[in-house]
Amino acid sequence: MSDLTKTLTRAELIEVYHQMVLIRRFEEKCKELYNARKIGGVYLHLYNGQEATGVGAIKALKPTDHVITAYRDHGIAIAKGADVKRVMAEMFGKRTGVSGGKGGSMHIADVSVRMWGGYAIVGGHLPLAAGIALKSKYNEDGEVVLCFVGDGATNNGYFHEALNLSAVWDLPVVWLIENNLYGMGTPVSVASGQPELHKRAIAYGMKDFGRVDGMDFFAVYEVAQQAVEYARAHGPALVESITYRYEGHGVSDRIYMKRVEEMQRFQQRDPLIVMENKLREMFPDIEPELAKVEPAVAAIIEEAVRFAEESPVPTAEDLTRHVYA
């Protein structure tokens, strides 16, 4: 562990652990509610297994920094500070949802905490990230954009154009590739001529922060801190986080369950277990604090579901509102 990660206090680390547990239980609840048909639609992309990557990277940001991601976005929105009740209400398609019930699972944004949203065209949000970073560069306000990029997005044109533009304009953006080994059902090794995705940085003359163990909060946090501060001072940075999703690509994915050995290998290094063990190592008397986390999280989830269930649905007026400013 480097000096950098020691800058987090015991209370902050408990908060980090709380957030990771919250995301895990939120996603489990979403799956349950989807199967019970309380959450509708055809899309539900869960973040279980990737919590250390999202929470670790976002912890490296200042509150004034920006986050944008693709459609696996619930956990990232919660990590950036979006109201859990309103994220759940969005899952239910309710008027009180962060996106007014118009976005749903794939379009969770809360601009009040500088979470610019989840986007559902693979790679489509990458130039948006560059544009938000351009605002920071233009105004010289010192803000950084953290853009989560799925491994699948590294092979379409948006990736190339957005990363290159960020390099030629020295934009303050961190491209964080969440390599969960599969783009839908296709392994990275089948989809990418160069499966070590961080090496793409070389092609753009961009600072390469290499590969990081995406199941370990501390590992992600440490590299993300370096990348974020590099981006703030110099320009774009690229990080590849090796992580794993415990669920399918979406809820309709049935292939993933065949990958038993691989799943077990990652689950042995589950982000929550890795974090608990590190915390016990650092603070031998922490058990009582850890024990309080699950009940606290359960109460938050319960309240969020109640809020979502009791909230009104959008109206005919909402249907036509905000098409134009």
């Binding site: 990458l126 130039p127 154009e161 957005a162 290159n164």
Partner: peptide
């Protein structure tokens, strides 16, 4: 880079 030109304009506009 037409995709990036328009996409970056969208992001910049969103951000103010």
């Amino acid at each position: 880079s037409e995709m990036a030109i328009v996409g970056a304009a969208v992001g910049a506009a969103m951000a103010g």
